[in-house]
Design a protein around this nucleic acid. Structure first.
Length: 319
DNA sequence: TGTCCACGTCT
DNA sequence: AAGACGTGGAC
């Protein structure tokens, strides 16, 4: 049957991951699941480890300031996750719910993450549907709707075993990551291929059905690397909401739909929903921008998103 | 090069 | 309820 085949495969094929330990630790499960939202395992591992080193328990994290959390989070992206993590830690420090219905009320925890924590950390019979699970089950059942989350969730509920729910949840996602990959799935060695409808029909590449994406627009700006006489650079903090909320930046012109002229180096960066082209201008001029002066060697103490690191690097090289 | 991964959560 | 929200690596 489905769950025993899957669990047998998982017992021998699973990867060793820092959050996949013999003793369940809800803090570790929560932290890893937030980091893993829209983000690959390889990227997450070093962040997970440095967070645990700095904040060994959820109570330690609850005492941290938002700025400290953002500094540790810098480069991971989707910075609202860090802002919600900071908020959530303070609630979890008081009480850590084990039920999906309670977990989903917490900041940064949606339907997927609530079910994942409930099942992985507390062995509850909860259906965690992420991109891997959608792919595996839409192939297994040849589900051909474009947004099949709800159908997948219903199917998954019927497959969940009474025991070892946490292992089952992880096993299904592990199968999606290692065997039932988006491209070139290894159906030949898949433990479920006898019953997989898509594979039996030779149609695994048709599932899941995807909606085509529209082309990304490009936005333009000029960024200013303003140096003080002693070499310090002017930084300022972005508003707490919206794009790169709460992160530091160098001053820029407003991000516009039309090209801004300039002669400095060009930095390109792609965000979720637009391309960004920045002309980097270096100057020693006095400035009307408000901000703080930071020496290049001290930049690591500030929460800088990757796009700003690129801009500063290009600006310093050019001078 | 450009597309996909990447359904995850919030507003 | 559709769009906002990062990043990097695979191909």
């Amino acid at each position: 049957m489905f769950s025993s085949k899957l669990l047998d495969w998982y017992a021998k094929a699973q990867r060793k991951l820092p959050w996949r330990t013999a003793f369940k630790n809800p803090y570790h499960t929560w932290l890893s699941e937030i980091m893993l939202q829209q983000t690959t395992v390889v990227t997450v591992i070093p962040y997970f480890q440095s967070f645990l080193k700095k904040w060994p328990t959820v109570h330690d994290l609850a005492l941290a300031s938002l700025d400290e959390v953002l500094v540790e989070w810098q480069g991971l992206g989707y910075y609202s996750r860090a802002r919600n993590l900071h908020k959530c830690a303070q609630q979890l420090s008081k009480s850590f719910p084990s039920k999906e219905e309670e977990l989903v009320k917490l900041p940064g925890i949606g339907p997927y993450t609530a079910a994942a924590i409930a099942s992985i950390a507390f062995d509850q019979k909860s259906a965690a549907v992420d991109g891997n699970v959608v792919r595996v089950l839409s192939r297994f059942f040849t589900i051909d709707t474009p947004k099949p989350t709800l159908e997948v969730r219903e199917k998954l509920m019927t497959l969940l075993p009474e025991k070892r729910c946490g292992d089952f949840t992880q096993a299904l996602m592990e199968l999606g990551a290692l065997i039932c990959r988006p491209k070139n799935p290894s159906c030949g060695i898949c433990p479920l291929h006898d019953d997989c409808q898509a594979y039996q029909q030779g149609k695994q590449s048709y599932f899941p059905i995807k909606i085509q994406k529209q082309k990304l627009p490009t936005r333009y700006a000029t960024a200013f690397i303003i140096r003080r006489e002693d070499g310090a650079i002017l930084l300022r903090k972005r508003p707490l909401r919206g794009l790169l909320g709460g992160m530091m930046e160098v001053p820029t012109t407003p991000w516009a739909d039309t090209k801004s002229e300039g002669s400095g180096p060009l930095v390109r960066h792609t965000f979720t929903h637009f391309h960004f082209e920045v002309n980097v201008q270096s100057s020693h001029e006095p400035t009307f921008f408000e901000g703080i002066w930071v020496h290049p060697q001290d930049l690591k103490a500030y929460a800088l998103p990757t796009v700003m690191k690129k801009i500063i690097k290009a600006g310093l090289k050019a001078t």
